[in-house]
Design a protein around this nucleic acid. Structure first.
Lengths: 357, 357
DNA sequence: TTGAAAGCGCTAACAC
DNA sequence: GTGTTAGCGCTTTCAA
C-alpha cells in the first residue's frame, strides 16, 4: 500500500480518491478553494465577462484537480431547463446487420453538437415503444429520432408528438408535415443501372423483390429512368420478381437465362449472391457471360464475393447524421416530403469495364 | 381548427397542448388538483403507505391527464442522488455487422431493471473515448460497459476507474481484478469440431486465422480438446492458417485438398464462404465430398450459403446482457478471470448426418 | 472581483 | 390524509 506512494510524481495529478456514493460537489470545491460556489461556477464555465483574479482562478483549478471534481450534468440540465439528450428509438436497427450505422451516424453528429444519445430498441413492440418514448420525454430530450430498420411507411406514435421528432428511414403518409429522411431509392436504382449501361450493356434485366416497399417502386423507377436516358425502351419482360434473399436470387437463375440479357441488376446484394451460385452452376462467368450489380452494399457480402460485387450503397450512416441535423434545425429544410439521401454507387469487379469501340 | 373538436370524445384523453419550452411541472398539477406537491408526488409514486383519500387520488390523476404531465427525470435523479443510466462505450460495435447485438442485449437487460442506455461509439479514438467516459461520469451513470467489437485484450482507460465498470468482449491483463465477460472460444471451437465428429469424420482439418487473438488460441484449443475426447491424436499437419475472410478461405483450398481430410473447421464463416467457392471450383460437393463448419454464425452468410453452413454462434446479445447483469451485481460473481459465455452450435446442412454403421 | 441567495422540479421528513 | 419545508448540485441575478 504505502509503497505505491513512491510513484506519485506530481501530487496534483492524483485526485484524492472519492467515495463513489458521494461524488465531489461544486460546493466542496468552493470550500477547498476558499471561494464561493458562484465563483467556482464562473471559472468552470469560462464565462466571457468573468472577471476573476488570476490567482483565484488558479486556486479553483487546483481544487478541482485535487478533488477530482466532475460536474453533475443533471443538476446543470435541471437549472438550465434544457437537456443535452437526443433520443433514438429504433424498431430493430441494432438487430439487423448494417443498419447499426444509423446509430453510429446519429451518435457522431449528436456528439458533434454536444448532445448525448439515449437509445431504445423496441423490436417493433408497441408497448415497449410507448415506454421508451415516455422515458425519453421524461429526460426532456431535445428531440427524438424515430427509425426503422428498412425503408418503409410508418405510423407516428401519438406520444412522439409531445416532442420534436424526425423520421429516419421511414416516412408517414398520414402526417405529411412530419419531417423525415429516407434513402433516395430511385436515384440508387438509376445509379445501379448506369453502372451496367457504362459497361456497354443494352439489354439489362432487373430482378425486383416480391415484397411491397418503397424500395421496390423506387429501384424500379430508377431502372426505367436510366434506360430512358439512354434511349432504351423499357421492356417489362425484362423485369422479374423474386424473394429478396440468396435463395430468391438462386431460384431466379433459370428464368433469367431465358431472357437473353448480358447484364442483370438485382434488388439487393443477397439476391446477387444467390444468383452468383446459380450462374456458376450453369458454367457462366461473371462478368464475362453476365454482368451483375446489386443494391445495399452489404460489406460482408458485396466486397467479398467472387468477383466482388458492384452495387449501390444504402446510406445508413448519413441517414442517422442527417436525422439529427434536421432535428437540430441545422439543415435548410427542403421543400415538402422527406429529404432524400443519395445512394452512391460502389463499383467493383462484377461488371467489366467497357472498352468503347 | 375548431372542427377538430368534433372528434374529442372523452375530454380527459386530450391533454391541453403544452408549451414545449415549458413542460408541465408537478407544482402545476398540484395547483390544478388543489393539493400540495407532496400529495401529487405520493400518488405518482404509488407509495405503499400512501394513505391518500380516494377522491383526492382521483383528482390528481385527472389533473395529470388533463395537463399531460411528464415527470422530470433529471430532477428525480438529482434528489435521489442516483441516476438510472448505464453507459456503453464501444470501440466500434455499431460499425461491425452483427456486434450491434451487444448494444441490443445491453439495452434490453438495462431496460428490464429500469435503466436507460447512454451510448458512445469511439471508433477507437482515444480522445473521443475520454470525452465519452467523462460525459457518462457527469451524468453519474450507475456504471459503464466498455466493449470492443472483437474479442481481445485491452487497456482500461484511467478515467473508467472513476466508475463501476465491466469489460464486454474484452479483458484486461494488467488489471485482473476488473470484471469482464467474454465469449467462450474454446468451448465454441470444441462444439464446432464436435459437429464434424458427430458427422462421422475422424480426419478433420482446421484453418485457423493468421491474426493473433484470443479467438485464435481458444478455437484451436477447443479443436484439440474435442479430438482428444474422441481419442483422436492431434495432428499439427492438419492445422493451417489463412487470413480470416473470404479470400483467405478461398486461397486455402489447394493446401486443404492436399491434406486428404473429409472435413474442415474454419476459423470463421467468412473463411468458410470463400472455401465454398474454392471447393466448388474443384468440382467438390458440400457436404458429400467435404464437410464444413464455420464460426460466428454471421446470419447473412451462414444461413444462406449453398448449402447453409453449420457453425457456432458468437453470443453478442448475451455478452451485452450479461455485462449489465454483472454491473448491477445480479449474477453471482464467478471465480477469478472473465466470465465466459457459451457459443452455441448452430447446425445446418454443411455436414451430413451420420448414419451410424 | 467576489459572495449571498433564489430557484430549477422533485422527494422525504415531519408536522398538523 | 395532507401540507410545509428543506434540500439535491448547480447557475444566475444582484449586491457589495
Amino acid at each position: 500500500m504505502i509503497s505505491q506512494e513512491k510513484n506519485s510524481g506530481s501530487a496534483a495529478d492524483i485526485p484524492i480518491t472519492t467515495d463513489r456514493a458521494h461524488p465531489v460537489t461544486l460546493r466542496e470545491v468552493a470550500e477547498a478553494a476558499g471561494v464561493s460556489t458562484a465563483t467556482v461556477s464562473l471559472v468552470i464555465n469560462k464565462k466571457k465577462n468573468a472577471r476573476i483574479a488570476d490567482d483565484t482562478r488558479q486556486r479553483v483549478q487546483e481544487a478541482i484537480q485535487l478533488l477530482g471534481y466532475r460536474p453533475n450534468a443533471m443538476a446543470k440540465n435541471l437549472v438550465s431547463g434544457t437537456s443535452k439528450f437526443i433520443g433514438l428509438v429504433a424498431d430493430g436497427v441494432a438487430t439487423t446487420p448494417f443498419a447499426g450505422q444509423i446509430i453510429h451516424g446519429a451518435q457522431d453528429e449528436a456528439w458533434k453538437h454536444g448532445y448525448a444519445l439515449l437509445i431504445a430498441n423496441t423490436e417493433g413492440n408497441v408497448d415497449l415503444e410507448r415506454d421508451a418514448i415516455a422515458m425519453m420525454l421524461e429526460y426532456k430530450v431535445r428531440g427524438i429520432l424515430y427509425s426503422t430498420w428498412f425503408h418503409r411507411a410508418t405510423e407516428v406514435p401519438e406520444t412522439l408528438r409531445e416532442s420534436d421528432f424526425v423520421l429516419v428511414n421511414c416516412f408517414s403518409p398520414d402526417s405529411p408535415a412530419s419531417r423525415a429522411v429516407v434513402p433516395d431509392e430511385a436515384q440508387g436504382g438509376k445509379s445501379a443501372t448506369e453502372i451496367l449501361l457504362r459497361g456497354g450493356h443494352r439489354r439489362i434485366a432487373f430482378i425486383n423483390t416480391t415484397t411491397p416497399a418503397p424500395a421496390k417502386d423506387g429501384r424500379l423507377e430508377g431502372y426505367r429512368e436510366a434506360l430512358e436516358a439512354e434511349g432504351i425502351a423499357f421492356d417489362p419482360e425484362l423485369v422479374m420478381e423474386a424473394y429478396p434473399d440468396q435463395e430468391g436470387g438462386y431460384g431466379a437463375t433459370e428464368e433469367l437465362l431465358k431472357l437473353n440479357v448480358s447484364a442483370v441488376y438485382c434488388y439487393n446484394d443477397r439476391m446477387a449472391m444467390g444468383l452468383y451460385d446459380g450462374l456458376r452452376e450453369h458454367g457462366l462467368a461473371i462478368p464475362e457471360d453476365m454482368a451483375v450489380v446489386g443494391f445495399d452494399n452489404q460489406e460482408v457480402i458485396a466486397a467479398h464475393l467472387r468477383p466482388p460485387l458492384s452495387t449501390v450503397s444504402l446510406p445508413h450512416y448519413e441517414l442517422g447524421a442527417a436525422g439529427v441535423r434536421m432535428l437540430l434545425g441545422l439543415d435548410q429544410a427542403a421543400g415538402d416530403g422527406p429529404v432524400k439521401i443519395a445512394c452512391p454507387a460502389v463499383e467493383r469487379a462484377s461488371v467489366a469495364v467497357h472498352t468503347a469501340a
